[in-house]
C-alpha cells in the first residue's frame, strides 16, 4: 500500500505540491494525470526518495522512502523513467540485470544474463538484442528494455513516468498493454504519471488529477467520464476553455 498525506514541496518561491493526499491499495494501478508543470514528476521523485519533501508523510508498504530505510524500500521498487534512462555505456542485458551484477542481490554474470534474457523476452524483445547498446535501439525498444529492468527483481511497487511519451500511437498502445499485463500478472502496486488519456484508459484501476499542487479529483476508472469535476472535464476534453489555464 502506498500512502501519501499532506505532502508539501517547494523550490525557492515555487510551491509545487501544496498538500497532496493519495492512497493506492496493494495490487492496484493508480494513474496520476495533470497538465505539464503541475508537479507530477515531483510526486514520483518524492515517492522514490530522490527529492525530500518540505513536509508530509509518505509510506511505501510501511517504509518511509526518505528515511534511513531508503535502501530497504528501493530494493522492492521498480521505476520506468520517461526517457528510459538506460546506461549508455552498458549493453542491454547488463542494463536489465544491473541489480544482479552490482546490487545486494549480486549473482554470477552467467545467471544474471539468463535472467536478463528472460525479462527481455517477457517484454517482447528477442535474445539477439541482449548484446546491443541502448543507442542502437529505437525509442519503443528502449522503453521495453527499461520496463524489463524495472521488473527484473520482481518489485512489489512499480512507478511509470510518462511511459508512452515520444512513441507513435501503436507502440504507445503496445507499451500500455504490456504494463497492464505485467501489473495484473505480477500483482504489483503501480503508480503511473501521464497526460495521455489513452494510457489512462488502458492502465488505470484508479485515477487522480493533480492541479495547482493538490489532488483535485480521484476515483475509479469507470467514474472518469461521469465526473462533474470541472478540471477533469476540461482535461479529458482537451479544451482550452476552463479552469486549467492554457497559454495561447
Amino acid at each position: 500500500m502506498i500512502e501519501v498525506s499532506d505532502l508539501y514541496k517547494s523550490f525557492d518561491q515555487n510551491h509545487v505540491l501544496r498538500g497532496v493526499n493519495l492512497k493506492v491499495h496493494d495490487g492496484k494501478s493508480m494513474v496520476i494525470i495533470g497538465a505539464s508543470g503541475q508537479g507530477k514528476s515531483v510526486i514520483l521523485k518524492c515517492l522514490l526518495g530522490l527529492i525530500k519533501p518540505n513536509s508530509g508523510k509518505i509510506l511505501l508498504n510501511g517504509f518511509d522512502p526518505n528515511s534511513r530505510q531508503k535502501s530497504v524500500i528501493r530494493s522492492k521498487v521498480g521505476m520506468l523513467f520517461q526517457g528510459g534512462a538506460l546506461f549508455d555505456s552498458l549493453p542491454i542485458w547488463q542494463n536489465v540485470a544491473f541489480r544482479y551484477l552490482h546490487g545486494k542481490q549480486k549473482i554470477n554474470a552467467k545467471e544474471a544474463r539468463k535472467i536478463a534474457i528472460e525479462k527481455l523476452e517477457r517484454v517482447g524483445l528477442k535474445k539477439s538484442f541482449a548484446d546491443n547498446f541502448p543507442s542502437e535501439l529505437s525509442g519503443g525498444m528502449q522503453k521495453r528494455v527499461a520496463l524489463a529492468r524495472a521488473i527484473a527483481t520482481q518489485p512489489e511497487i512499480i512507478f511509470f513516468d510518462e511511459p508512452t511519451t515520444g512513441l507513435d500511437p501503436i507502440m504507445a498502445q503496445v507499451i500500455n498493454d504490456l504494463i497492464r499485463e505485467l501489473v495484473v500478472e505480477l500483482g504489483i502496486t503501480a503508480v503511473t504519471i501521464t497526460h495521455d488519456i489513452q494510457s489512462v484508459r488502458s492502465i488505470a484501476d484508479e485515477v487522480a488529477l493533480l492541479h495547482n499542487g493538490i489532488i483535485q479529483w480521484s476515483g475509479l476508472l469507470n467514474q472518469l467520464d461521469k465526473s462533474k469535476n470541472k478540471y477533469l472535464k476540461q482535461f479529458i476534453a482537451g479544451s482550452t476553455v476552463g479552469p486549467i489555464e492554457s497559454l495561447r
Partner: peptide, 22 residues
C-alpha cells in the same frame, strides 16, 4: 552531466546503487 540530464543518475539511485560510489 549527460547522465544527470537523462535521469541515469536517478536510475542508479533507484537501482540501490550510490552514484558517488559507482
Amino acid at each position: 552531466g549527460t547522465m544527470k540530464v537523462t535521469e541515469q543518475i536517478d536510475a542508479l539511485s533507484t537501482l540501490s546503487t550510490d552514484p558517488i560510489k559507482y
